[in-house]
Every structure is written in structure tokens, then in C-alpha cells.
Amino acid sequence: MSVTAHAPGHASGHEPGHDAGKRDFLKLVAAAGAAVGVGAIVWPMIDSMNPSADVLALGSVEVDLAPVPVGQAITVVWRGKPMFIRHRSPEEIKAAQDVKLSQLTDPQTDAERVKAGHEQWLVVIGICTHLGCIPLGNKPTDPRGEYGGWFCPCHGSQYDTSGRVRHGPAPLNLALAPYEFTSDTKIKIG
């Protein structure tokens, strides 16, 4: 773009410095104020993309465990995520408890991952900690991997009967969600 008018006669913003100091200070205050203002308006805009109140309010689901036979697992949805609930057999519990922590990628005892007195129930978030696929192993026909837990079809991560990662690229065990037993056969997730 060209300009028809002449270039300015005086350089931008210079004049005898009689009170240049005061002016610079004022400029600084104004600029700081503007920066604060912009920051203050940017936050609501960012926050508007966080989960809204109706999403946060969808707190909890109740699950009846009675129909799940030993050795089987079910999937329920909590906050839009699959939750794996597995009814473990005594052998599976023993296998999970006997693993040495030194063999684990993400060392955690089985006891830390179930509720005391309800060791037969394993409740984990069914999302592979590698890149978010849903591991196989809930249906009787699914492959469960070498360790009898879950097998992720995306990149071959394998989980044991405590949902701990034993093989593959996944860095962490299957995550736990907050839940409690409301009776012997009922849990409330969330």
C-alpha cells in the first residue's frame, strides 16, 4: 500500500523530556492495566470450554452386581467412559496378589486396587493408559492376553487380573474410579 500524504515531520513520540519520566510511568500503568484487562476477559473465554455444570452434575451411577457370574465382567458407562467391573475367581485374585511389585511397570499391590472384603470385585476405568483405546477382555470370547486380564488391540498392551499393565507401551495401570459398596451386591460409582 502506498501513501499519498507526506511522511511525518517529527519522529514518533519524541519531544523535550521535561516530564518524560512521569509520562513513561503513566504509559506503563496504562499498558499494565490493559494487559490485566485482556487477561481478565480471556479467562472466562477459556473457562467456558471446561465441563459445564450439567456435565459435572452427572455424578454417579449405581450398579447391581448380582447378575455378574464369577469370571465374567460387565461394562457400564460413567461420565461417558466405560467402566470395567470384573467378578474375579479365587485363582485370579491369588494370581493378582502373588505378583512381585518389582515385576510391575507401575508398581501397585492388588489390595490397593480393590475394596477390602470385596476382593472378588475389580472396578477400573476401561481405557488403555497408552492412547485411550478400550481393551478387550470383557466378553468371554475376547482375548485376555497372557496375564488373564485385558488386551488392548491398538498397540498390544496387556493387563493382568488386577488391571495392572504387564506388557506393551501403556505406562500406567488401568485407572481407578471412586466408588463404594452400598450393599454386598451394589456399588455406586462417582
Binding site: 513520540g13 519531544e15 523535550p16 516530564d19 512521569k22 509520562r23 503513566l26 504509559k27 500503568v29 496504562a30 492495566g33 490493559a34 490485566v36 484487562g37 481478565a40
Partner: peptide, 23 residues
Amino acid sequence: KVIAFLVLLTGVTYAVKRKVWAD
């Protein structure tokens, strides 16, 4: 809060404007 802030900011900005235009 927003309006109180903006009134202050207007004051400061106007002061700067006066200084800049003084010459």
C-alpha cells in the same frame, strides 16, 4: 468490578493521552 476497573483504566489512559498530546 469490571466497571470500576474500566473507569480507572479510562482515567489512566486519558492521562497518558494528555501527556502524549501535550506537545
